[in-house]
Nucleic acid binder design. Structure first.
Length: 501
RNA sequence: GAUCUCGUAGCUCAGGAGGUAGAGCAUUUGACUUUUAAUCAAAGGGUCGUGGGUUCGAGUCCCGCCGAGAUCACCA
């Protein structure tokens, strides 16, 4: 127990705990043999097969109590559904009086038979009850009603976001849609794993603690290793180690794990977030686009039963294929300017005409990025592959096979937000060295998100990496898309919070 | 990091002409052996985020601090 002062309800629960102990009932027993999940009973029971449900054992947390004198109705919830339990005094001579010492939040196990009540609800008629865990704090009471149209009306929802995120275990208990969101998240990740594994690509684990960070433009977290007495960085991307593995001879590797970026927190950013990266040898970005289309459209159907999702009131179709548009064609379409091959000064002038505010020190890459963010992104509601980026924006991508000054890269945008980033991976070590050195110069000039030169990575490329297609997907944002959530904190179980004081 | 908004009982909220707090649910007691936002009757529960100021008097006005949300900046 915390040292917090207990309120009257918490004190009463302690008294009830002692009541059970004094009665020789262990309030924290060791196990309970369940025969059925609640959902199975609700789905499989019908009035003609009652004999199959004549002796069931169910268990779960008490969520509501209706005492009617010599009969009582509780709802218990397990990890599948809410189920009603009927207690009749005559059938529970030994335990019925103990029922009033049970509270919302306690966990019980019940043996009994399944039946349908007069009002039609499938329920378990209890023959035996065991207390499995006494709860010492009171939960928020959320009541639900199904109206005549079958819509669920929720009363007194537990909705304080701060409490919900800090006390996620309570959020999960009382808000069933929250539990569903995280079940979907888990299903999505296992679907992706299965999809990749079936193709013969291998899941790997690469260092989280890295002597040099790389693979993205971001500010890292720094920590210190005592025995080695060196700084170590928490990874900002998976890329450079996964490519080393392609050099090492694996032909398809992927990793799904946390990245850490020392930046602001908002509706779409959490300092630690889950990234998927995959690298497949002998493939290019065109192949990767087809893979992404298939993966995402199949995933949507697997998760939601439909390739169409509604988010922020917009209907979005994730059915394959997705639109593909060259980045500079999008600039033409939404700004009226052809920005390809323009000098920094020309871009600065155009940004001014478009009324896009730009830091006068900004590089041309930065200016393009700003204009894209301000003028183009918002139009990319339906899934759109934006392809062929300027070389300065993509230091790890391979030069375009036809167009000078561009690289073979795509980003997938959905609902105006970037979901994936991919390229034909740069495997010419000389070109890669030049580009990283350029990054290092930018860093020296004050760009604290620019990349650093990783000599070991360059040596790996000198050993030789086959042509390779690489892809990164922000899993949290993919979950947001498929669950309709608009805040990343609603798809991360324990989002980063400032500590309470 | 900036701006705006918010922080009242276990939960959801009301109060805001400054006069030391209200509702519903939850809890307690009683009635009720198929109820379901169960119902009916009665009762208990709050140093109104925190520290200071103005005032005879502050949940209410002012300032600092803590925490949160939204928008923006940066990014995925």
């Amino acid at each position: 127990m915390s040292g917090k002062t207990k309120n009257d309800q918490e004190l009463r629960r302690e008294e009830e705990l002692h009541y059970f102990e004094d009665a020789g009932i262990n309030p924290y027993p060791y196990s309970f043999d369940k025969t059925h999940k609640n959902q199975v009973i609700l789905e499989k029971f019908d009035d003609n097969n009652a004999e199959l449900f004549a002796d069931v054992a169910v268990a779960g947390r008490i969520m509501s109590i209706r005492r009617m004198g010599k009969a009582s109705f509780f709802h218990i919830v397990d990890d599948t559904a809410k189920l009603q339990i009927y207690f009749k005094r005559d059938d529970l001579p030994d335990f019925y009086d103990n029922l009033k010492m049970l509270d919302i939040g306690d966990i019980i196990g019940v043996n009994g038979y399944v039946f349908r009540t007069r009002t039609g609800e499938i329920s378990v008629h209890a023959r035996n009850v065991v207390l499995l865990c006494k709860s010492l704090t009171n939960l928020p009471i959320v009541k639900e009603e199904i109206d005549e149209n079958g819509n669920k009306i929720i009363y007194d929802a537990f909705s304080d976001k701060e409490l919900r995120y800090r006390k996620r275990y309570i959020d999960l208990i009382v808000n069933s849609h929250v539990r569903e969101t995280f079940i979907k998240r888990s299903k999505m990740i296992s679907f992706i794993r299965r999809y990749f594994d079936d193709k013969g690509w291998m899941e790997v684990e690469t260092p989280v603690l890295q002597p040099l960070y790389g693979g993205a433009n971001a500010r890292p977290f720094v920590t210190h290793h005592n025995a080695l007495d060196i700084p170590l960085y928490l990874r900002i991307a998976l890329e450079l180690y996964l490519k080393r593995l392609i050099v090492g001879g694996f032909e398809g590797v992927y990793e799904i794990s946390k990245n850490f970026r020392n930046e602001g927190i908002d509706r779409t950013h959490n300092p630690e977030f889950t990234m998927l990266e995959i690298y497949v040898a002998y493939k290019d970005y065109k192949w990767m686009m087809e893979m992404v289309e298939e993966l995402i459209s199949k995933l949507a159907i697997h998760i939601n039963g439909s390739s169409s999702v509604e988010i922020e009131g917009k209907q979005i179709s994730l059915a394959s294929p997705f639109k593909r548009v060259k980045m500079f064609d999008l600039f033409k379409e939404y700004t009226g300017f052809d920005l390809q091959g323009k000098s920094r000064e020309e871009l600065l002038k155009i940004a001014g005409e478009l009324r896009v505010p730009i830091d006068p020190q900004a590089s041309s890459m930065k200016i393009l990025d700003e204009i894209f963010g301000a003028k183009v992104e918002e139009h990319l509601i339906q899934p759109t592959f934006v392809i062929d980026y300027p070389i300065e924006m993509s230091p790890l991508a391979k030069k375009h096979r036809e167009e000078k000054g561009l690289v073979e890269r795509f980003e997938l945008f959905v609902n105006g937000k970037e979901l994936c980033n991919a390229f034909s991976e740069l495997n010419d070590p000389r070109d890669q060295r030049n580009r990283l050195e350029e990054q290092a110069r930018n860093k020296a000039a004050g760009d604290d998100e620019a990349m650093v030169v990783d000599e070991d990575f360059l040596e790996a490329l000198e050993v030789g990496m086959p042509p390779t297609a690489g892809l990164g997907i922000g899993i949290d944002r993919l979950v947001m898309l498929l669950t309709g959530e608009t805040s990343i904190r609603d798809v991360i179980l324990f989002p980063t919070m400032r500590p309470e004081k």
